[in-house]
Simulated scan of single mutants.
Amino acid sequence: MRLGLRHRMPTVELAISAPPQAVWDVLVDLQAWPKWGPSVTRAELEVPGPLRLGSRGKVWTPLGVPVPFEISEFTDGRAWAWRVAGVPATRHEVIPTNTGCILSFGVPLWAPPYLGVMAVALPRIARLATRPR
């Protein structure tokens, strides 16, 4: 795991020996979010379908409180970012490598302590992306 700076955001990154598409599939599967996201217990879109730019929905916190979100950046197969309760939140990026990919999570400049939560999520995503189907 490595700390860094990408897109003017503090980041935590993990090299994963899995195809980039397998990692991406975990990132955009709302049913999987509670499996890897320590701060998510449930997520749903207002309009069913794949995650995309402008998608809106709700994410439930461990306190059982639903919070609205909107996807504010989306490059299919590569990156997505969101606003939660109208506030810029995390950015998720899959960077292809010769041996798999690097998964990078960025947080707003005002939220570097949240990198700890992201550091918990990264190996969970790696496990989900590499498990037999």
Rank of each mutant, 00 (worst) to 15 (best):
R6I: 00
L45Y: 11
L103T: 02
L115A: 05
L27S: 01
W82G: 09
V28L: 05
L53P: 01
P20C: 08
W33G: 07
E93Q: 14
D76Y: 07
A129E: 10
I102F: 13
D25V: 08
R2L: 11
R131Y: 15
I16D: 05
R56H: 02
A111E: 05
N98W: 10
T90S: 04
R124F: 06
A81Y: 00
A15R: 11
F74K: 03
V23Q: 03
T99C: 04
R2F: 06
P68K: 05
F69N: 01
T75P: 04
C101V: 13
A121N: 09
V12W: 03
P66R: 10
A32S: 14
R131G: 15
P113G: 12
P108H: 14
M118N: 05
A111Q: 01
G49R: 12
V107Q: 12
A119L: 09
G100P: 07
V28M: 12
W82Q: 15
I16S: 06
F69S: 03
L128T: 10
E46K: 15
M118K: 00
P132M: 10
G4Y: 04
V59Y: 04
G57S: 04
T99F: 06
S72R: 08
M9D: 00
F74L: 13
G57L: 03
P66T: 02
W80L: 13
A89S: 15
R8K: 14
V94L: 12
L27G: 01
E93H: 09
A15G: 11
P68N: 01
H92F: 05
A79T: 04
G77A: 11
G37Y: 00
V84K: 05
E93A: 14
R131S: 15
I102N: 07
P10S: 12
G54H: 06
Q21Y: 09
E44S: 11
G100Q: 10
Q31S: 14
L5F: 09
A126M: 13
G116R: 02
A85D: 13
P112F: 09
L45N: 11
G77M: 08
R52W: 12
G54Y: 07
A119W: 00
A89N: 10
D76W: 08
L63W: 03
V94D: 07
